[in-house]
């Protein structure tokens, strides 16, 4: 494997395009670092478990029933994760609200199951799921850091005294959320292009 390539389906493709698929839960959880970490963990575990099961069963499940079968698997895991979080992280579940349950129909997880796990073995699926999960967690935490500190003048829910006079409430709102997400996407795009450019140079 050449350096920088085939690390995962995530980095092979366009991460910012993938980010658009997950914009819903990224937006819903990027107002607070605790929510971002909670959603990140939920996404990671849902991706990982559904990828393992799908990659193990993809040969058994007939092609014409893959969509409902995969959705059932993903929904099942998301429900189990949601139940576990309600028991042990009720505050985070309150912060995430309906968006945690909406992970069951997330295009990101379905895409991972359908495009990766369905065509590869467990090892590749697990690796991709972990990279994708970590990628989203990092993006959500980065957005949450900006929105919480700049928009709310808080960190981990605790007020930052010297920031109180300088906070920009718009950043904590929906408009600010999209703005921050756009900035993060632009940075990711830049890094990805640079990454591909280096790969091409190496290949030549």
């Amino acid at each position: 494997m050449k350096k920088g390539t085939k690390t995962s389906y995530l980095l092979k493709g366009t991460p910012s395009a993938l980010l658009v698929l997950g914009a819903g839960f990224v937006m819903a959880s990027s107002h607070d670092i605790r929510a971002a970490l909670g959603m990140g963990a939920a996404v990671l575990v849902a991706l990982l478990l559904s990828s393992i099961v799908v990659s193990a069963l993809h040969k058994v499940i007939p092609a014409y029933v893959k969509l409902p079968a995969y959705l059932l698997i993903i929904t099942g895991f998301v429900s189990l994760i949601s139940m576990f979080m309600q028991a042990h992280f009720p505050e985070i579940v309150d912060m995430l609200g309906v968006h945690l349950a909406a992970l069951a129909v997330s295009a990101v997880i379905y895409r991972d199951a359908e495009e990766v796990a369905d065509h590869n073995g467990e090892a590749t699926s697990i690796k991709t799921a972990i990279v994708t999960g970590i990628f989203f967690t990092v993006v959500m935490v980065a957005c949450a850091l900006i929105r919480e500190i700049v928009g709310n003048a808080t960190l981990w829910g605790k007020p930052i005294a010297f920031m109180q006079e300088y906070k920009i409430s718009t950043i904590a709102g929906v408009f600010g959320g999209y703005l921050v997400l756009a900035i993060v996407m632009a940075i990711i795009n830049k890094i990805t292009k640079l990454h591909h450019h280096l790969d091409e140079e190496e290949e030549n």
Binding site: V60, I61, P62, V65, P68, A69, L72, I73, T75, G76, F77, S79, L80, M83
Partner: peptide, 13 residues
């Protein structure tokens, strides 16, 4: 297949 998946997750839940 669908029944088995539902049953497994139902049991897990």
């Amino acid at each position: 297949i669908l029944l088995v998946i539902v049953a497994l997750f139902g049991g897990a839940m």
